[in-house]
Write a protein that binds this DNA or RNA. Structure first.
Lengths: 358, 358
DNA sequence: CTACTTAAGCATGAATAATTACATAAGTCC
DNA sequence: GGACTTATGTAATTATTCATGCTTAAGTAG
């Protein structure tokens, strides 16, 4: 029911037509959802010859979710509404306790809205069933402090989910997200779900060998790993730029050496992507990370190799696009992760039933 | 309810304890399932100090499913019971009409048990939502003739599903199935489901380039594709063997040249598998196809490269094993495909409700 | 202003589902 | 053999859920 309202603000009568339920049954559910603040009502519906309907809409202000995108040394914490909009945001220092305190402070500043869930992105693999951060389960302390479920996910997976929810879920196509920053990582969303693999290590493409590396030794000990050949660190070593932002700026400005460098990097990454495209046949390949700003020469290199190396069927209709959310993908993905669970029909049903009995 | 009975033959009292339902509620469901022939009862339960329970068990003989594994020029059709056991089997000639006639004949020989569903494996990609064979949807004619739903799937995916259901579903780990025959193909089972990709082309790994090919040109136009370097056809060209069975026999017998050839092929395939393992982090890699008979040298080569090229995390706990079902995987997978749908709780509920109202 | 149309609330009643209470069956233990 | 324990079947009761019919609300069309 909430799902239908979220997908397109309907009226009670419309919900009845869609679900086949009678008007009282619909009205009961809607009134429950309104009592919990999840649905709002406005009397501005267009009349079609009779009484105008009350337009129902999802009430994003009906609760808050706690999100955080943690890096190795710094991170962001935020409180979002139920549509994923950031209400308050802050930088955080490492440590779970510090994060919880930050969230508490942010909530105080917002008048302590009811919290529905929490989601954290971390720069480590997360194994299903063992949602731990630095070896410590995150669920119990968050449940103790805020009384809500917590969800932990790898940061690349989170960014991929953020992009997926914002643009691609409706098409339901599989998505391959490739993050090109100092290092190289990937995330898979297949069948509408993040694929973590057996130990949460899915997407670790950094150490797949590519051609054209000239035998460079990677930190992993092997030679010609894509990260050693075309990772951000490798590119900076061959560029006058001080960091990836500057390098991307040079590429955008058309600096010939940088354009060549980035395009060649795109080709090498393209080899890995081509293999992944053949294996997975995704609907979309999304390029994210700090190098996204140098998208034109980058994607030119990627496309060149993917369309040469990819099978006809796997590349037919394949979209290769840049990340659009950029840095915002992390928090957006955390929000999407939490909302996916918290606003799922089963979770909402459970919420309604629980409060009813109080 | 049927799910619980299938997972481990329980008694009515045990079902009540598990589900939390009262005894009459359990008894009602069980009696419905028995009325439809899906559950059987035996009075041989062990007493624990009182009346011995009636042991309930899934009744595999309570219906039949139609399965077929079609190759390009020949194929097999069979009728299975609800446990996937083949009751009757036959070779078929191409053509959907011929297949339906074969099934009809097989059913006649079995006294026309009630048919619950049909599943077909075909050597082509199958796109989700467009279950077509040679451009013709298979659902309508099968529904018209037998009144049951039909499921179509790629043959490699089917074989992977057969292996997965027979051994790996309980562990719920992701599975990468690699078929090494004349050509090379793969299938992915992630999150318990076959992953088809956008156009059904997932698993097309034949044309990923590998090292050591010496620049051999593949039929796809590129160079050093793994299929051109290490596919069955390429191996036969470098072996005195007439076919893959003979080649595998030589390898098993320890013929040095063949062992070296197969082991080297394993290394080349291992490069592709290593990349896939890094990308997907599966729990199991299963090697199937005609080359499976030469498993020892083959897997030695695969392991060598996978453990060198795979990241520590992705290869930790990774199992690389041979297919055990062999040729039987096709029909077993078709059966699993159909049974997955037909015995799913929703489908069983729908069946009970439908017949109730008649 | 009156008739008509569509939306939505409310009270009653029917159908469904599940539980409780009771009865029966079939074993073990002393 | 008689008491006890466990499993199951049956009937009546209760609770839940949904739908029907009626009423009210709020607009448009003539």
């Amino acid at each position: 029911m909430l799902k239908l309202i979220r997908e397109g603000a309907s009226t009670r009568a419309e919900l009845g037509r869609i679900t086949g339920l009678s008007r009282p049954a619909v009205a009961l559910r809607v009134s429950e959802l309104m009592a919990h603040g999840l649905v709002g009502e406005r009397s501005d519906g267009p009349s079609t010859g009779g009484r105008p309907p009350a337009r129902l809409s999802f009430n994003a202000a009906g609760g808050a979710i706690l999100v955080a995108n943690l890096g190795r040394s710094r991170g962001q914490a935020a409180v979002c509404d139920l549509a994923g909009n950031v209400l308050a945001q802050d930088h955080v220092t490492p440590g779970l306790d510090a994060l919880l305190d930050h969230w508490d402070a942010l909530l105080d500043g917002l008048g302590r809205p009811p919290v529905r869930g929490a989601g954290i992105g971390v720069p480590d693999p997360v194994e299903s069933g063992r949602e731990e951060w630095d070896g410590v389960p995150v669920g119990p302390p968050i449940a103790a402090r805020f009384g809500v479920p917590a969800f932990l996910e790898n940061d690349v997976n989170i960014a991929a989910l953020g992009e997926y929810e914002s643009r691609y879920r409706r098409e339901a196509g599989d998505l391959l997200f490739v993050k090109l920053s100092t290092g190289i990582g990937a995330a898979l969303i297949m069948g509408g779900r993040i694929q973590r693999g057996a130990l949460g290590a899915a997407g670790e493409i950094a150490h797949i060998p590519v051609s054209g590396g000239g035998g460079v030794t990677c930190r992993c000990g092997n030679r010609d790993c894509v990260e050693a050949v075309a990772g951000g660190a490798a590119l900076l070593a061959r560029s006058p730029a001080a960091d990836l932002a500057e390098l991307a700026g040079l590429a955008q400005a058309g600096d010939p050496a940088t354009v060549t460098l980035v395009r060649e990097a795109g080709r090498r990454v393209g080899e890995v992507i081509a293999a992944a495209v053949n294996l997975l046949n995704p609907a979309v390949v999304l390029l994210g990370g700090d190098l996204t700003a140098a998208y034109e020469p980058l994607v030119a290199g990627v496309r060149e190799v993917v369309y040469r190396r990819g099978t006809t069927l796997a590349t037919r209709g394949l979209r290769i696009e840049p990340s659009r959310l950029g840095d915002a993908a992390g928090l957006a993905g955390c929000a999407a992760l939490v909302l996916d669970h918290v606003l799922a029909p089963e979770a909402v049903d459970a919420l309604l039933r629980r409060r009813e009995r109080v």
